[in-house]
Amino acid sequence: MQPVIIDLAAIRESDTTAPEHWNPMPGSLEAIARLNRADRRVLVTGTPVMDGDAAPDLGRLTRLHNRLNQAANNAGGQIDAVLFCPHGPDTNCPCRPPRPGLLLDIALRQQLRLEDVPYITLDHGPALEAGRSAGVRCLVLGAGNTDAGEPGFSSLDAAVQYLLDETDNAD
């Protein structure tokens, strides 16, 4: 099963990590289910600590991940792993975006060639920088960066359709 890495920001509607305020973007959970039906593993990454926070509240983070997993299951999908940097912004951790360590660690643990792995993220911010540095194949939600050759999509569903069409055309 080929993996797809999705940044949590591409799934959620709000910037909060509070589980009670977290809502998926319309169509995002259904897009995850479509990936699963196409025999794709879904790995979600995210940085749960906002600048200024000392460290994540692991209880709050667990509730958020549980809510995300349950919502995906309710939509007929499955998230194979939720991976994140547990350190605060002041630690200079190599796995905290914009550094690529989290994506590099995923590649090592999953034995992946990152240049073959699609990474869906927003068209701005530290997660995109991390993706570029790690050498993943970035698909961006927003206008995209035509200078870097990264395709842009209006939604996670549109990016997933692009990936599925690409697979169909390769057969």
Rank of each mutant, 00 (worst) to 15 (best):
T91K: 12
P100V: 00
P98M: 02
T45A: 03
P19S: 04
D90K: 11
D105E: 15
I106N: 10
A10C: 08
F84W: 14
G52A: 09
N169V: 06
D80H: 15
L108I: 05
S154D: 12
A18S: 12
D168N: 13
L83T: 08
D57K: 09
D105G: 05
L61H: 07
I106C: 12
P97M: 09
D15Y: 11
H124A: 11
P97L: 04
A38S: 09
A75I: 12
A158T: 06
E20I: 06
R41M: 01
G149C: 04
L29I: 06
E129Y: 00
L35R: 06
L61N: 07
E129D: 14
A127C: 10
D7H: 10
R34A: 15
A10N: 08
P118H: 07
N36P: 01
C85D: 15
H65Y: 03
N69D: 08
G46H: 04
A38R: 05
L58E: 12
P86F: 05
A31K: 02
D80Q: 06
Q110M: 14
N73D: 10
D116S: 15
P48N: 02
S28P: 10
I120D: 03
A130R: 01
R96D: 03
R12S: 09
A143I: 12
A55L: 13
G27K: 11
P98H: 05
A33I: 04
A75T: 08
P151Q: 10
T167G: 01
T62S: 12
G27V: 12
S28Y: 04
P89G: 09
D39Y: 00
D57L: 11
A170R: 12
H21N: 12
L139P: 05
D171M: 09
V42G: 01
E115Q: 14
L163G: 06
Q111E: 12
T91D: 09
N69E: 13
G152I: 07
P26M: 02
H21P: 00
G125V: 10
D105R: 15
A18G: 00
L156V: 07
P56N: 08
D39F: 00
D105Y: 11
G149R: 05
T45H: 01
A71I: 06
E115F: 13
E115C: 14
G131M: 04
R37E: 08
A143C: 08
T16L: 11
D7T: 08
L163K: 03
G52F: 07
L114M: 04
T17K: 09
G149H: 08
V82F: 15
R99C: 00
H124K: 15
P151H: 06
N36E: 02
C93T: 04
G88C: 10
R109T: 13
L83N: 09
T47R: 14
I11H: 03
A38V: 06
L104C: 07
H124N: 11
R60F: 01
P19R: 07
R109V: 07
V82L: 10
G27R: 10
Q2F: 03
A71V: 02
T17D: 09
L128I: 03
F153W: 07
A72D: 02
L163I: 07
P118L: 08
G101K: 13
P118I: 04
G125W: 12
G52P: 14
H124Q: 15
D165H: 13
P126A: 13
W22V: 06
L35M: 10
M25L: 15
I32S: 01
I32G: 02
A81H: 06
R99P: 00
A148G: 08
S154C: 04
